[in-house]
């Protein structure tokens, strides 16, 4: 009987601690209350991160100074949270990194909570980070989740004379509807660079060489890249491994990122018209 009582007592204590935990979490608004894993509700601290990161970036002097820009290139953080912690530690030790770019598949299941978990890790970076949407980020309600947490699916920014064109190329997720990527928009952003734009970089998740890129759009897209007057290279993710090459006749360079799981990333240093140096770092 005594044992039984102590058993109940234990359960009651367990129960009380759970309740206490729940109350503390509620007060600290740790987002226990969830209507659906597919909901897109986003607390202010996790909203419009692209815009917030860009504001931070524009306010920050270029660490390398002058014409050179040095940044970390990675991709596919999807469900690699332990690796994300080590990634942040490693990048924070690098010198003169202006920002980090993440080539899509921030999440694995397209859930808003995953985007928040990734941001919980990446907000520990000493420098701003910018993302482009990946195919996994478009599953379920992922499109709206990404828009709430990060922002527009296509956007551009210019830093240290380098214009970055970030574009959604996840054609398969739209059933190859012939409109993804938005080639007209990419064309307009690349065609006549402003005088302060010394070079251009296009970044997207799925490369045109991939079977997940809308076959109807490959031709016009690749031609648009080839026609861009100051394109240094295109950056992609999706393959979870590093590669660099010029797969098309127009000599456009494509660089693919490691995923977080590979515990490696690329440091790119870009200067001059299309000059760049590429280093890979293990973590």
């Amino acid at each position: 009987m005594k044992q039984l009582f102590s058993f109940f007592h234990t359960i009651s204590l367990f129960h009380r601690s759970l309740m206490a935990g729940a109350v503390v979490c509620l007060l600290a608004s740790c987002d226990l209350i969830e209507f659906s894993p597919n909901e897109t509700r986003t607390p202010e601290a996790y909203r419009n991160l692209t815009q917030k990161n860009l504001e931070r970036l524009q306010a920050q002097p270029n660490p390398t100074g002058g014409d050179t820009v040095r940044f970390v290139f990675t991709g596919d953080s999807q469900r690699f949270y332990s690796e994300a912690e080590d990634f942040v530690k490693s990048v924070n030790q690098q010198r003169n990194i202006a920002f980090v770019v993440l080539a899509g598949d921030v999440s694995d299941f397209g859930l808003v909570r995953e985007l928040r978990w990734v941001h919980d890790k990446l907000q520990q970076l000493r420098m701003p980070y910018l993302t482009v949407i990946g195919n996994h980020d478009l599953v379920a309600n992922g499109r709206k989740a990404y828009q709430e947490v990060y922002g527009p699916l296509n956007y551009t920014f210019t830093y240290a004379g380098t214009k970055f064109v970030m574009v959604d190329t996840n054609g398969r997720e739209y059933g190859f509807n012939g409109r993804i990527p938005d080639v007209g928009w990419v064309q307009r952003e690349l065609r006549e660079p402003a005088p302060e734009v010394k070079r251009q970089v296009v970044m997207s998740h799925v490369a045109p060489m991939s079977e997940d890129f809308d076959p109807k759009v490959v031709g016009p897209y690749v031609q648009t890249l080839g026609d861009a007057p100051r394109l240094a290279f295109e950056l992609n993710g999706h393959n979870h491994d590093f590669s660099i090459g010029k797969p098309y006749d127009n000599e456009v360079t494509f660089i693919n990122s490691y995923s977080f799981e590979k515990r490696q990333y690329v440091v790119l240093t870009v200067w001059g018209e299309k000059e760049f140096k590429l280093e890979t770092v293990q973590f």
Binding site: C30, I33, R79, Y81, E85
Partner: peptide, 14 residues
């Protein structure tokens, strides 16, 4: 992600 994702992160309350 043992150790990489805190338990309270994955909990929901109803």
């Amino acid at each position: 992600n043992l150790g990489g994702l805190p338990l309270h992160d994955i909990l929901t309350l109803g």
